[in-house]
Amino acid sequence: MRVEYINPFVESAYNVLKEVLSVEIVRGELYLKSTSMPVLGVAAIIGLAGDVEGRVLFDMSKVTAIQIASAMLQSMEMEPIEELNDMGKATITELANMITGQAVTKLHNLGFKFDLTPPAIFTGDNMEIADTGVEALIVPMDLPFGKIEINVAIRERN
């Protein structure tokens, strides 16, 4: 993945999570992966198009997702959720959208033109994701609620 793309994603993930959740966040070591990998239980996915092609995947366990969604809802003075209902899913999707949106804005300022696709969310047990033909950058983020893995797979259109 192009070096210039890395920081915008790492920074915006860190900033957005910190801002909306108001908790301490520890960024793990970044690494690369290109084989199939397990999905923790809830995965929000956003496609990217434009100068590049690829996608960003936000991967977390169901428990983490419920806690994050609850924390976000409570910060807006809404009821927390007990299970991952429509509201919870919409909240996680929105979080993914905010992070990706901010990253893309940063990239735009650097002169790279990206478009986003509407986010989608997958939930289930024992899921796996395989990308053939594109290498993924993994940005692990440790939160008090558990960990979120941000999985960015982008390649240049050539």
Binding site: R2, V3, E4, L30, K33, S34, G133, V134, N158
Partner: peptide, 15 residues
């Protein structure tokens, strides 16, 4: 030049 964070053991998009 296009610098990439890339592991040569992984798949790549080089033409």
């Amino acid at each position: 030049i296009l610098f990439e964070y890339h592991d040569v053991a992984n798949t790549n998009a080089v033409p």
